[in-house]
Computed example of a mutant assay.
Amino acid sequence: MKIKSGIGFDAHRFAAGRKLIIGGVEIEHELGLDGHSDADVLIHAIVDAVAGPALGRDIGNLFPDTDKAYKDIDSKILLKKAVDEIRLAGYEISNVDAQIIAQKPKMAPHIPAMRKTLADVMGLEFDDITIKATTTEKMGFTGREEGIAALASALVFRRG
């Protein structure tokens, strides 16, 4: 069995008039994130982490922001399409481990719902998705509450 690892990173600035969606979960906050899609930084990082090793591509190659079909799209749809492509290529996802970097809002209360949502979308077990959250102690763009970032790592393996 061939096993590959992947990493992903994404960051978006805050924007007024948008919902804040992280890990497929809407979080109560006065600002959302700016982006072509719903700007779900966690899902975008996960797509890169799983698609990189399995498909040799990233989210920008799979779902370009120049394509109007992806304007304001729910990132769970993008994740499901990426997972389907990964499986068509003969790979399965073993697990995803992710980190959300945000000063505010607090992410910990939402992590169980994010894990369940992501596991359901990806067809994985709840325990195959781990998510942590941290602040940057008020340093950098996340610390100044200008936006949110996310990191993800994943293991994929070739079936058969």
Rank of each mutant, 00 (worst) to 15 (best):
A69T: 10
G60N: 08
L88E: 15
K80E: 14
D67I: 01
I59E: 00
V83T: 14
G90R: 12
N61Y: 00
A89Y: 06
G90A: 09
K81A: 08
D74M: 00
E92C: 03
R57H: 10
D84E: 12
L79P: 04
A82Y: 07
E85D: 12
S94D: 15
D72L: 07
D72N: 15
R57F: 08
K76Y: 13
K81C: 03
Y91M: 10
D72R: 10
E92G: 11
K68H: 07
I93L: 11
D72F: 02
K76P: 10
G90S: 09
R87S: 13
T66C: 01
E85N: 13
D72P: 01
I77F: 09
K76Q: 15
V83H: 13
L79M: 13
I93K: 03
E85G: 06
E92S: 12
Y91S: 11
L62R: 04
L79E: 07
L78K: 05
K80G: 15
K80C: 08
N61M: 02
L88Y: 12
D58H: 11
A82V: 07
D72Y: 08
D74Y: 04
R57D: 06
F63A: 01
L78E: 07
G90P: 05
N61W: 02
I73W: 02
L79C: 09
D74S: 00
D65L: 02
R87N: 08
E92R: 13
A69E: 09
D65F: 04
D72K: 15
T66Y: 00
A82N: 05
D67T: 00
A69N: 15
L78W: 04
S94P: 02
R57K: 14
A82S: 13
R57G: 01
E85P: 02
L88N: 12
F63V: 01
S75Q: 12
L79A: 08
A82Q: 02
D65C: 04
E92V: 06
L78R: 05
S75D: 14
K80A: 15
S75N: 15
E85L: 14
R57L: 14
E85W: 12
R87C: 08
Y91I: 11
L62D: 01
R87L: 06
L78D: 04
L88S: 14
A89G: 03
L79H: 09
I59C: 10
I77Q: 07
D67F: 01
K81T: 03
I93W: 04
T66F: 00
K71D: 13
I77N: 07
P64M: 00
G60R: 11
V83I: 13
L79V: 06
P64Q: 03
E92A: 12
K68F: 14
R87M: 03
V83E: 10
S75F: 11
